[in-house]
Design a protein around this nucleic acid. Structure first.
Lengths: 301, 301
DNA sequence: ACTATTATCCCATTTCTCGGGATAATTATT
DNA sequence: AATAATTATCCCGAGAAATGGGATAATAGT
């Protein structure tokens, strides 16, 4: 039977008011509605809750017991509702964020610290991984990824900033390697590749003066899903790799690596935030994105 | 909004089943009903409870919190319902019984002892008083009274057994008093009366051979609402009184009192049980009446 | 690429609920 | 003692709400 909760509330109103009509007034309904609520409740419970004449209404023992049991429950239930209502705007609870490892270790500390200071009530849980995660199943509130285009359609995403990439190699490698002046030379080189990306064994490159990307098939030499390890491999003379510049920035500055084919560029990839398919993002997630975006301008990618 | 409880139950079903259709199956309803239940609940709470695509359903943080809060409440609520259902047939709780003083002190011990042994779970509360009580307001489950006809229409009543009455006086009083052979002589006597009875200052008497009662107006001399005190007054030579025989039985046997006008009788009065206006008496009250009635045959009134 | 599953939306039908007025019972008042 | 006022309940028509089925778009697995 539908409306059980409403009947119970009417019951409590009558019990408090001591009269059907008073309860109807208090509740803004009619006395016939109150009568039927009580009658229906009594029928579903199989117990008489009130002893009543046309002039007196009094709880039966069963009614009194029921009232005592039900009263705190209804209060707790409305409290739970209120608390749920507050959750949308809550700046508390936990915030599960997934982030690529190489990126996280370099840039995450500052925004995290600021966010933690701004919203001390929120329990931040950062998961650094380069594996793709199932935002829904794994219960993330946000997943930062560096990717060309949103692959997962069951999520909401938002571009944060572009992530420039470059082709790099070690000076030592280039000295003993075949010539490299155009992408057409690449198949003669050891090219290391970042997996999880569409460019597994094909890179797309365009000359700076041009628009169209040209595919370059390469012979796989080494693949890894971690940019830092790829950079280390290449620094040790392992070959050529296409990596976000921030990963190799230090090595470039130190001369351990140098860029190659500077006039050519790979497709733009973006630092992107993925969210669970909320119709409206909870405030905490919104605020985190805000703080993070403000820092993104200072990353110097 | 109506049906809130039903929506919450659907919500819990979905949360447990992890799928809308599975919840619909488990609940024996349609998937569209489940969808609308959740959507409505989310709207009233202003919070998204599930993050969902067409293939995955997962609790949001708000949903998880709500579930944790609501789960024990719903269990407790159904438990309260079940417990209320059991109350009708319950042989536990308290049983408030009101009983006239003179009667209670003489006859109540035996049935009470037996009932207490039969139903040790019931907490008997006996209130001995000769005042009329408001069964509903004062919360009695049963009120035993000795009366001519049920006065209170807002109660259910049940005759237990007739209570024979007789006119008595002390031998010493009769010796020095005017003659007394017919009711017509009564106005010349000191007649004590029991209040709370309709025969305040008028007795109705009929000759044993006749049917019709004849009113006898008497001059009030002393009135009391306690039979024992009236008997003591009369035993001390205070006059004549009309009392239930059980009250004066001992004094008659001892010769302290003697009956007068033996061929005349007062209107029949009954030991009567009054109940609150239940549509169906709770089992405990029923059982008590049962035990009490069995003893009534042995009262020897 | 195709199939199967899924949540959602839409619509017509059924069911439920509500409020007003009438009724009978009971208390308070005159 | 009689009348008036209050009250719970019953009945009924109108309005609202809930429901299930079918259609749709999205998604995961093959």
């Amino acid at each position: 039977m539908t409306g059980h909760l409403e009947r119970i509330k009417t019951f409590m109103e009558v019990a408090s008011a001591g009269s059907f009509t008073a309860a109807a007034r208090a509740q803004g309904s009619s006395s016939s509605a109150v009568t039927r609520h009580i009658a229906d409740l009594e029928q579903t419970l199989g117990v008489q809750l009130f002893v009543r004449t046309t002039r007196k209404v009094s709880l039966t023992q069963a009614g009194a017991v029921y009232f005592e049991k039900v009263h705190p429950l209804i209060s707790a239930l409305t409290a739970a509702d209120d608390s749920a209502r507050a959750q949308q705007k809550a700046l508390s609870g936990t915030l599960q964020v997934s982030c690529p490892l190489s990126f996280g270790t370099r840039f995450l500390q500052a925004p995290l610290t600021e966010f933690a200071e701004l919203h001390p009530g929120i329990d931040l849980r950062i998961n650094l991984t380069d594996s793709f995660v199932d935002i829904i199943k794994d219960g993330y509130d946000m997943a930062l990824r560096i990717s060309a285009a949103p692959a997962d359609k069951s999520t909401i995403w938002r571009k944060i900033c572009p992530v420039p990439r470059c082709l790099v190699a070690a000076p030592g490698y280039l000295e003993q390697a075949p010539p490299l002046t155009t992408p057409a030379d690449l198949p003669n080189h050891r090219c290391l590749s970042y997996t999880n990306q569409s460019e597994g064994d094909t890179w797309h490159l365009a000359h700076n003066a041009e628009e169209t990307m040209r595919p370059v098939r390469l012979t796989p030499a080494f693949a890894c899903n971690n940019g830092d390890l790829l950079a280390q491999m290449v620094a040790a003379g392992g070959g050529i790799v296409l990596l976000p510049r921030f990963i190799v920035a230090d090595m470039l500055a130190a001369g351990t690596l140098q860029t190659v084919l500077e006039d050519w560029r790979a497709p733009e990839i973006w630092l992107t935030a993925f969210y669970p398919p909320y119709q409206k993002l909870p405030l905490a997630i919104d605020r985190f994105t805000e703080v993070f975006e403000q820092h993104a301008g200072r990353f110097g990618l």
